[in-house]
Write a protein that binds this DNA or RNA. Structure first.
Lengths: 230, 230
DNA sequence: CTATATTGAATGAATGTTCAGCAAATTCTG
DNA sequence: CAGAATTTGCTGAACATTCATTCAATATAG
């Protein structure tokens, strides 16, 4: 119970896929990707306000002027980074949804579980998300991309809640509950990021499951690991 | 349904209580307070990374060097601002709790309702909170104060959930549910701050109430305005 | 050899901090 | 109580630093 289970996955450049292209002269896309990863690192380590172009360049082990070459400006680098995280998150939940099968309860469970997957839910990424959240209000460019849970996601959640309600005749108001659910997920992310109390990926997922359990008692039951579909 | 109900309360210096001391020479405490309010304004308007000492000084309609005179540095100004918001929030929920009477269900409802009170839950304050959240991870100084919902609050929520469970024999796991509830509240704040979708103070409160309704069906029922204790 | 990617020093703008001086308030003094 | 002396709050120009951006020179791949 004492170890915080939010370790980062391997950091830095080891992530790079094509080792043949590591030296001087890598393709445009590889460099951009490399710089975006370095940006996420810096956002996580130093926060938005302390992330400098030099940090990013150093993190990527490249020279100072490199970022302005591949991205036009700091602003554009950050937008590209946010877009990358947005796309990754988006692809992740869509994939989880596609793999979940036809059962509505399974689909909802899959979406919730996916949110706490190591691949997206780790200190590094959460810290980067939060860095953008902090700036989103005053930067129109960020706003659309900052709420990871976008309109599509929200609509899907709402739809699933609606279907479960129809299936089992729950009394809740579907729209309010869907909002509650997505806010809960985001709130748990925030808690994980803060990393104060002993909130771990596991306890966060438990809390989310507890919500499903109480909101949809006719669909889920307590299982050995987490919840099961009835 | 189209107007966003998140207007700020009167901004700027009009908030000041003692109008006699408005000219040159105000007491140390009054000046500090004035500068803290200007800081919140700037955080809300420009975000953390764009908030400068000049902005704050201009916002307070005072000279450039004033902040370093009353606070030693920018860092200390920001810490004082965060501390102020923390104290205010803390006093607010404690007051709501004290006024709620002896009934546990009433107390929990009062805490939740207090969270969406105009006095704390408005664009200006939420934006300022979020600005700090974005920096909290990389600044140890902020961490303790950034989670507005601190240990005391969390313990109280947990305690209330526990009592309600004992009263009515709910099946939920008390700790997970308490975490879910406080994360839900923070998540709703985040949503309100982003201000994209038509999430208003009212719909946010509805979502929170929907949670109480589904989690504690033996304690609450749908009422004319929000929920009622049974 | 040509085109392209990369470097790193130079530049200039933005910004936190300092501080000598000024002005209002307060205390002292005759 | 008047006026001098002192304390206290405040100003804004000057300074130093940090940082994004530029670009001429250089290295590498094809």
């Amino acid at each position: 119970m004492k170890t915080i289970d939010l370790e980062d996955e391997p950091t830095d450049v080891e992530r790079q896929s094509s080792p043949e292209k590591r030296g001087r002269k890598a393709s445009k896309e590889v460099r951009r990707q490399q710089l975006i990863e370095a940006t996420i690192d810096s956002l996580a380590k130093r926060g938005y306000s302390e992330t400098t172009m030099a940090d990013v360049a150093d993190g990527a082990k490249l020279s100072r002027g490199i970022v302005n070459f591949h991205f036009e400006s700091k602003e554009k680098l950050l937008v590209a980074t946010l877009q990358y995280m947005y796309d990754e998150y988006s692809a992740h939940w869509r994939n989880a949804y596609d793999k979940a099968g036809d059962n509505t309860a399974d689909q909802l469970k899959a979406l919730v579980t996916a949110d706490f997957d190591r691949a997206i839910c780790n200190k590094r990424k959460l810290a980067a998300w939060c860095a953008f959240w902090g700036e989103a209000k005053s930067r129109p460019t960020y706003q659309a991309l900052s709420g990871a849970r976008d309109t599509d996601y929200q609509n899907l959640l709402s739809d699933l809640c609606s279907r479960l309600k129809a299936e089992a005749g729950y009394a809740f108001e579907q729209q309010a509950l869907a909002l509650a659910l997505s806010a809960l997920l985001e709130g748990l992310w925030l808690r994980l990021m803060m990393g104060l109390e002993d909130v771990t990926r596991e306890t966060a997922l438990q809390a989310a499951n507890e919500f499903l359990l109480t909101a949809f008692p006719r669909h889920y039951t307590k299982g050995a690991s987490g919840i099961q579909r009835l």
